[in-house]
């Protein structure tokens, strides 16, 4: 019996090892490469940084040539931390607006008759079937002076002058909220759909009017969906590059753009790597806090 189990157990261990292997190969290894680049210096070389690994005999010299210079620069130059802060601000605003729009949307979808729900879900996902880039370009057409939005506003007599929204922070926010909204709606919908309707009846039965029942039952029970949706929107929004590049102006310098120009325009791969490493930690920190909050909540109960 015991011997018969051994191969099965080995197989079981192998199955467990696969995801770890995956993480090692596709997350840790690239991260190690980026980290090593971040400790290097920019150089006119191939690839454009120094030092290069010359074999284990010169390992000592190799390690000695690595330094924290790039990270020091990130700390010293206000441009970088201001860009980080600006990115966090834009991402936070995007998350909040997406939540404010996404929650009622998901709620309405979850309250719709079952047979409609799959159709509504398809409508939310539908924009994903066209290229992301094309959708952002479409917003240029809408937001540009005398574009669709201006035409509609002028046609209805709301405004007489063009709004000139394109290349402003407002345009970036519109584009970001539009692009990331489905990531907010889907987890919220999943949570709200699972919500046992008899809980709301129980709340009403115990004297809670609809709004109170929402605030005391629906809302707290949808917190996992809110957290998941916010994380799905916030994390990619911080590093977003395309939307601020296309819809933004000189004032909307997000860290993704800084990284891009360090890497491509300035050919400073080490500094770009340092920007990326810090960005990763900026993103991991709130996630770790979130996870900890969730753990302590579970532990206290």
């Amino acid at each position: 019996m015991r011997t018969g189990n051994a191969p099965t157990r080995r197989l079981g261990r192998l199955v467990v090892a696969v995801p770890y292997l995956w993480l090692l190969l596709f997350f840790l290894a690239p991260f190690a490469i980026v980290l090593r680049m971040a400790f290097s210096d920019a150089a006119t070389d191939l690839p454009p940084y120094a030092p290069h690994f010359q074999g284990f005999s010169q390992l000592g010299e190799f390690i000695a040539a690595l330094d924290l210079e790039n990270f020091r620069l990130l700390g010293d130059d206000p441009l970088y931390w201001q860009s980080y802060l600006y990115s966090l601000r834009i991402a936070a605003l995007t998350t909040l607006i997406a939540l404010a729009i996404g929650y009622p949307l998901a709620y309405a979808m979850a309250s719709a008759p079952r047979r409609w729900q799959s159709l509504l879900l398809v409508l939310v996902i539908l924009p994903f079937w066209t290229s992301f880039l094309i959708r952002v370009y479409a917003w240029i057409g809408i937001l540009r002076p005398e574009g669709l939005l201006d035409m509609v506003l002028a046609g209805t007599g709301v405004t007489s002058e063009p709004l000139r929204l394109l290349n402003t922070e407002a345009a970036v926010l519109i584009g970001m909220v539009y692009s990331y909204l489905p990531f907010m709606v889907l987890p919220l919908f999943a949570t709200l759909q699972k919500l046992d309707r008899s809980l709301l009846e129980a709340a009403a039965d115990l004297g809670a009017p609809a709004w109170t029942a929402f605030a005391t039952v629906t809302l707290p029970l949808s917190i996992p969906g809110i957290l998941a949706g916010s994380a799905l929107v916030f994390i990619p929004a911080v590093g977003e590059f395309v939307i601020p590049d296309l819809l933004g102006g000189p004032d909307t310098v997000m860290i993704g753009k800084v990284l891009w120009s360090e890497f491509f325009s300035n050919r400073d791969w080490p500094l770009a790597s340092a920007v990326a490493v810090v960005l990763l930690f900026v993103l991991v920190a709130p996630l770790a806090l979130l996870q900890r909050a969730r753990l302590t909540r579970g532990g206290a109960a």
Binding site: I140, R144, P145, E146, G147, L166, N167, D245, L246, G249, P250
Partner: peptide
């Protein structure tokens, strides 16, 4: 002159000029 510049970009201007933006 920066306050009067709407965008620093190396390719957007092609469309923006062509569209009359």
């Amino acid at each position: 002159i920066r306050p009067h510049i709407q965008k620093f970009h190396s390719s957007e201007y092609i469309n923006a000029l062509a569209n009359g933006d």
